[in-house]
Amino acid sequence: MRSIITQNLSRVYKSPVEKTGLARSAKGLFRKEFKYINAVTDMSFCAEHGDKIGILGLNGAGKSTLIKMLCGIIAPTSGSVVVGGYTPFQKKNDFLRLVSLVAGNKSQLNPDLSAWDNFRFLKSIYRVPERQFSETARKLTLLLECANLIDKQIRRLSFGERIKMEIVAALIHRPKFLFLDEPTIGLDVRSQESIRKILSDYCAEGDAVLFVTSHNLSDIVDLCNRILVIDGGTLRYDGGLAAFCAHYNTTSEINIEVENCTPRIREIVAGTGIVDCDFTGNMIRIQVEKTFITTVFRELIQKLSNDINKIQIIEPRTEDLLKELLIKGKVK
């Protein structure tokens, strides 16, 4: 069953143009000028139960906007979105009981109450049975090593501690759709890992649909089986993470360490069928088309056998690959 379907989903923000200078801003009191920002444009995709989707894109790409439309906080300007059979923006209670949102930069908890009181409050508005509630709360706080902080006012928690509480709070009503907008910003490595573990366990248990945006690419690689790459509000890639890498990862790298990088060596290297190479000191980094890698490798060994100290083939890590693609904007 398709649980999320969007069709030509778009969102345009209208924001007043701030005038500089007193006279002009006084004029602005009476007549406002607006500028329109296309935050999300014509996005169409589907998701099924069990999908764990990473949303990738640079700052301002429209990731948060997309998530807010999926969980019904803001209305699309045009196009349609259906989540679990509901139109999110109608905000039916039955729909809202199925979703959960964690946004790293915006607290979903009441800062004046303790985490425990917040959890009790959520329990009552989502009508979570007592047993399920205490089980979930205890298990999760133990896993996240924050059980001792549970009676502290949220505002007195450190940032990382608060995020952990937000994650627990998000899972208390066992949502079917879990939206995480940069959940691991500002967390130490250990906390990041425990959060990832909890999330992947949660997804493995049920058949929740998970959406994560993160600039921490390890989150995506660890958690997701599918990615959406967004650039300037448009969807550039939608598919499996592995397929994405295979598709864009067409070159491998050969690293050679030589005694002395003479012009003769440079010539030989340039003569083999390579895409690009880079000489720094006695290190040579060569980019080679995947299909030719063995031929090039063999050729280099034959011709340079006396000069080579060390030679190795380097497969790029998925994170690095994603990073490079995002920065160079190579995604087409």
Partner: peptide, 11 residues
């Protein structure tokens, strides 16, 4: 923009 938290809950 502080209503996100309430808008996403069944209240």
């Amino acid at each position: 923009g502080l209503l996100d938290n309430e808008l996403v809950r069944p209240i």
